[in-house]
Simulated assay, not measured.
Amino acid sequence: MTSPPDGWDTAWVAALEAMELEADEVEQLLRHRDVLETAPVTPVTFTPPDGLGPLPLALADRARRLVQRQLDLSRELTIAMAGNRQQARLVGRLHREAVDSVPVFLDNRS
């Protein structure tokens, strides 16, 4: 059995930390999505380092928790996007009704 290359654990720890920071940013966006409408959002993308190799066994639990956290965030993002689409449809419908409506006046003074 060959031993892992030098820095193998360190590279994995750094990769997991980067993924956790990305998850933190997504959580912040979800938590503050109503006030961030006017704030610029810089997309965050994680790119795994080349030649990372297999996950060290000592980091398996941390990686499992991170995967579950990402799945939970993905579910929350899906719900938030569906809500945004629903609101956009409602606003569009209200706007169309306001534009298409013709004012009608009825004089009941007879």
Rank of each mutant, 00 (worst) to 15 (best):
T2Q: 06
T2I: 11
S3T: 14
P4K: 10
P5D: 04
D6P: 11
T10Y: 15
V13N: 12
A15R: 13
L16C: 07
A18T: 07
M19Y: 04
E20Y: 03
E20S: 07
L21E: 15
L21W: 07
A23R: 00
D24W: 06
E25P: 00
E25F: 02
V26A: 05
L30T: 01
L30P: 00
L30A: 03
R31H: 07
H32L: 07
V35M: 09
L36W: 08
T38V: 14
T38S: 13
A39V: 12
A39K: 14
P40T: 03
T42L: 08
P43M: 06
F46S: 02
P48W: 04
D50I: 05
G51E: 11
L52Q: 09
G53F: 02
G53S: 05
L55C: 14
L57G: 07
L57K: 06
L57I: 03
A58L: 04
A60K: 08
D61T: 03
R62Y: 03
R62H: 02
L66S: 00
Q68V: 13
L73N: 01
L73V: 00
S74M: 07
S74K: 07
R75I: 01
R75N: 02
I79T: 01
A80W: 02
A80K: 01
M81V: 05
M81D: 05
A82V: 06
A82R: 15
R85D: 10
R85L: 08
R85P: 00
A88R: 15
A88E: 13
V91L: 14
V91G: 03
R93E: 15
R93T: 12
L94P: 09
H95D: 10
E97M: 09
D100M: 15
D100L: 14
S101N: 11
V102S: 08
V104D: 02
V104E: 08
D107V: 08
D107T: 05
N108F: 14
R109I: 02
